[in-house]
């Protein structure tokens, strides 16, 4: 049973990462990583801070280039695309940033209009307004439409960040630490929203987190990044059914056993 009630098409891979390595100077962050995301799936990537989880989704979206290996998104090799082709591919990928990355100088409405106006130039003013109101309604924050990002709470900023990515109707969602820095109630709301997004917009998602409650609540499948490689893969209970000292503290801390 899926967390969202959606359907996973295990014959269709929307993201394929093969043998990807990435270093920053002497720091080897990823060491030959393989990853597959199936259509309609919510895949959670667990791992300690600084283990390269965010680097992985930045590689997938083409913000960083891998030192080794290949990344295929929706059938296209990300590292072989021209700037223009990459820009077109990115329209199909929604990226929700850890700190929301809302444009400080713009209102919520302008934040949401920004990608729409630039990428769907044929839309009329009325259609743009309709789209903006529709996604804001989907995240339950229609009333904040004229507010500035500085007037919003952390949870609201996260929701608006997600709404901004949804406005382009992406096929894939990449969530970078969606619950980081939020109170437990807001975390539950954000987890619910991730599942709602998958169900309503039929997205396939990668969720980067070290919050096990989030992983348990949204993940159809979980992979664990340890020492630059995916060491464990499976459903929530399978992942933590181990005596591995690198894995156990995660569970013990999160569920206070």
């Amino acid at each position: 049973m899926l967390k969202s009630g959606g359907h996973i098409d295990r014959d269709t891979e929307v993201i394929t990462v093969q043998n990807v390595s990435k270093s920053f100077g002497d720091l080897h962050v990823l060491r030959g990583v393989d990853l597959h995301l199936f259509k309609g799936e919510n895949l959670v990537v667990l791992g300690r801070s600084g283990t390269g989880k965010s680097v992985l989704i930045k590689l997938i979206s083409g913000l960083l280039k891998p030192d080794l290996g290949t990344i295929e998104v929706l059938g296209e090799h990300v590292d072989e695309l021209s700037e223009k082709e990459l820009q077109q591919l990115r329209l199909k990928i929604g990226f929700s940033f850890q700190n929301s990355a809302l444009y400080d100088s713009m209102t919520v409405r302008e934040n949401l209009e920004f990608p729409l106006v630039r990428n769907k130039r044929h839309l009329s003013r009325g259609e743009i307004n309709h789209e903006v109101e529709d996604v804001l309604d989907a995240v339950g924050l229609l009333h904040t439409i004229n507010q500035m990002p500085s007037e919003l709470s952390g949870g609201q900023r996260k929701r608006i960040g997600i709404a901004r990515t949804l406005i382009l109707r992406p096929e894939i969602m990449l969530y970078d630490e969606p619950t980081a820095g939020l109170d437990p109630i807001t975390c539950i709301e954000i987890n619910g929203l991730i599942n709602e997004v998958q169900e309503k917009y039929k997205t396939s998602s990668i969720i980067i987190t070290h919050d096990l409650a989030c992983a348990k609540s949204v993940g159809d499948r979980i992979v664990m990044l340890l020492d630059g490689k995916f060491e464990r893969e499976g459903e929530f209970d399978q992942i933590f059914d181990t005596d591995d000292e690198r894995v156990k503290p995660f569970y013990d801390y999160n569920f206070i056993t």
């Binding site: 930045k58 990115r90 990226f95 940033f97 990355a101 920004f114 990608p115 990428n119």
Partner: peptide, 17 residues
Amino acid sequence: SMRVTEQIDAMEVSGTN
């Protein structure tokens, strides 16, 4: 400040140069 708060990255991934 846009760079360190990932606003520039956000523009890039939303199909804006």
